[in-house]
Computed example of a mutant assay.
Amino acid sequence: MTESTLGVGILGAGPVTQAIHIPTLARLRDVLHIAHIMDVDANIAQSVAGRVGADWTTDVDELLADDRVQIVVVCSPHQFHAAQVIAACRAGKKAVLCEKPFAMNQSEAEEIAKVSIETGVPIIVGAMHTFDPGWLAAKDNWGDLVDIAHTIRYSIVLPPNSRFEDFATEIITRPVAQQRDRTDPEVAAGMMRGGIMGLAIHDLPLVRSFCPDFTDMEVLSAQVLSPSGYLVNLRIGDQNVQVRGVNTNSWRPEWIFEAIGDQVSLRIDFSPSYVQAGSATAVLRRGNRSEVYGPYSYNGYEGEWRYLAAVARGTADPLDVTILIDDLTFAVEVADRASEFVRNAMTAVGAAA
């Protein structure tokens, strides 16, 4: 590490930090170095920091007071995101990266936007696929697909995160998962909302690229999948949108985004988050012709970090914070409406029985 590289402070040293951000930053030593790691568990903070030669702490304020930390990444549990992003902005850092979701509701998002504008500290949300070279190449070449696509499909089929995390991390104590009664309407509604805000939110910004005006949204169907997952069919304006995610015990992962028109279609295959295997591959079909973009040498995580470093140095324009608010608003709308659909449908079935 040298003075020519930007110092990174990490709030939360769990599986995402260990299995994704640390390996990514290791490939970017010419640009960034990890200066300080915070976790509420002192053993985890000390052990993870020791791997990368960083200082460690259990106190958020101590990390934010470290002048060597120029970029803060928030990898803590969701409920702490908003307060920690705001604190990082008020600490005068050069930029903040927050894992998804960066807020739990509209009021938190608006407060973050207000503080970001007041302090001049740019914020990036870790929707890694929006920085993936495969996605960006498709976006540069899809022409009028946004206007003519009538069907949007977004599907994730993955083994449980724990399978990846147990390979890539050493010191996380995994709590025993509690069995939940998915026949209870409130439990099922909560599982639906959790699935949308925890997994689907990764690529809902991509969906929103094709549905920028989502004021006319209707949930056609929604169900909680077994053993764990969700399936939601939406009508947004004139477009049909399907959002699906399921965790299975098979080792056949897929992460696919599709936009389909009558004569033009796009399919993008992303690697699973914990697999550092380069970029997505995008296939754009026009009639009988196909154009293939990717795979490129790096993935969206590396793309977001390189962009973040450029923003911190002032060599790239920061994202408009209103885009982040709109992305979150869209995700919350989908989550709230789908969970309400599940609650009402299951209540009606129970009443009929």
Rank of each mutant, 00 (worst) to 15 (best):
H150M: 01
R153A: 14
R153H: 02
Y154W: 13
I156P: 12
V157S: 06
P160T: 11
P160A: 11
N161K: 11
R163K: 13
F164L: 03
E165L: 03
D166I: 08
F167D: 12
F167H: 12
A168F: 09
A168N: 10
T169I: 12
I172L: 09
I172K: 11
V176F: 13
A177S: 04
Q178F: 11
R180S: 09
R180L: 15
D181V: 02
D181R: 04
R182Y: 10
T183I: 02
T183A: 06
T183K: 03
P185N: 07
V187G: 07
V187D: 01
A188L: 05
A189H: 01
G190Q: 02
G190N: 07
G190A: 08
M191N: 05
M191I: 13
M191K: 07
M192E: 12
M192I: 10
G195C: 03
I196E: 12
G198Q: 09
I201V: 13
H202C: 12
H202R: 05
D203N: 07
L204V: 06
P205T: 03
P205I: 00
L206I: 13
V207I: 10
R208Q: 12
F210L: 00
P212T: 06
F214E: 08
F214Y: 12
T215M: 07
T215P: 02
D216C: 06
M217K: 04
M217I: 10
E218Q: 14
E218C: 06
V219N: 06
V219A: 08
L220Q: 11
S221Q: 13
S221R: 09
S221N: 14
Q223S: 14
Q223H: 04
Q223T: 13
V224F: 05
L225S: 12
P227K: 00
P227I: 02
G229M: 08
V232S: 09
V232T: 14
N233L: 11
N233E: 15
L234F: 08
I236P: 05
I236D: 03
D238S: 09
D238Q: 11
Q239R: 12
V241W: 00
V241P: 02
R244F: 15
G245S: 13
G245Q: 09
N247I: 00
N247K: 00
N249D: 15
